[in-house]
Design a binder for these strands. Structure first.
Lengths: 172, 172
DNA sequence: CCGTACGTTCTAATATTTCCGAACGTTCGG
DNA sequence: CCGAACGTTCGGAAATATTAGAACGTACGG
């Protein structure tokens, strides 16, 4: 049995490590909690994963922040307990909003800022160069905007199609 | 002008650094190439970004590998030249396949492996414990499978709805 | 009010990633 | 063939992320 749980903890840890969102330990903590019928204390997590309390503390907090783990206050104990969240859809929405869309908006902000700087310094540009630059920026902007709109729709429960994304063509 | 391009390069670099897919330099290289009307040689990229040839070489290769950059052989020059790919939809599909779905499959593989180990060691388990574990594994499996199916559908141009994902409930 | 059990923060160590420059192998024009 | 112009690989240096342990602040049971 502990063999099965151990495999799970390490497997989820490995998946987390390549996710770009969680690190390996966060994945292992989540994997551990997910297969527990009752919440675990910080000390129990440290013991199970053989990690220091400081390390577990900070990484549990990150999981709570992603709504992947909930903090439980148990009557009669001064220890915080933690349980895995199981509403995956909510977690996925959180990730789409706070990671994916946030990243897309970075791109949109960069495009807008570059547009402004290009317009301001237009006189320094050859006509062709300026036109090329503008059209490239517009191509990226429209794609990023379409992705952002699509993810928003998806998160709100509306269907998301790749058709608008496939349509976008950038000038060569 | 170079002001505008510089803002773009650094902005895309920053976005890449938090993407979980590319690192900062890869983002800066892509940003540089994207605003160039003509392909650039390795040396020109090094010069523009103030990076060593070895560093640029390896990171350009990663971009080529993601289909974000194409290698161009120019007649009369022994140098390789590189240009930014502009078919964003193709790149997005590549990322969904090779990063996102691959990651989901890691989870599915872990669940399957854990299932097997749990079944093999069932005798060591209390009945309730075994039932709990099985139901948790099934909950994660069904969600991961639904995501995998949805992403596949989306990549193939069919619409993708969150409805099946929202429906999945894991036993508390 | 103490004293202790607890979680957090800070500092230092360790591991990992990023980066440079040198050495290397390959290819192409002479 | 030879030599120089390439891109790549390798080893180590520098920067960054992860981890442990000690010091700290807080709150709760006595």
């Amino acid at each position: 049995m502990e063999r099965a749980r151990g495999l799970f903890v390490d497997g989820i840890g490995a998946a987390a490590a390549t996710s770009g969102i969680l690190n390996q330990l966060q994945g292992r903590i989540y994997g551990l909690l997910y297969l527990q019928p009752e919440p675990l204390s910080l000390d129990e997590i440290c013991e199970a994963l053989q990690q220091s309390k400081s390390n577990v503390s900070v990484n549990v907090r990150a999981l709570v922040d992603w709504n992947l783990v909930r903090q439980i206050h148990r009557a009669g104990s001064r220890k915080d307990h933690y349980e895995a969240a199981t509403d995956f859809w909510r977690v996925m929405r959180e990730i789409m909003e706070r990671r994916f869309r946030w990243n897309i908006r970075q791109v949109l902000a960069t495009v807008a800022e570059t547009e402004r700087a290009a317009t301001a310094g237009r006189s320094k540009l050859g006509k062709d160069d300026g036109a090329f630059l503008t059209s490239r920026l517009e191509g990226l902007r429209s794609f990023a905007q379409a992705v952002d709109d699509g993810v928003e729709a998806f998160a709100e429960g509306r269907p998301f199609t790749s058709e608008p994304l496939q349509r976008i063509r950038v000038i060569q």
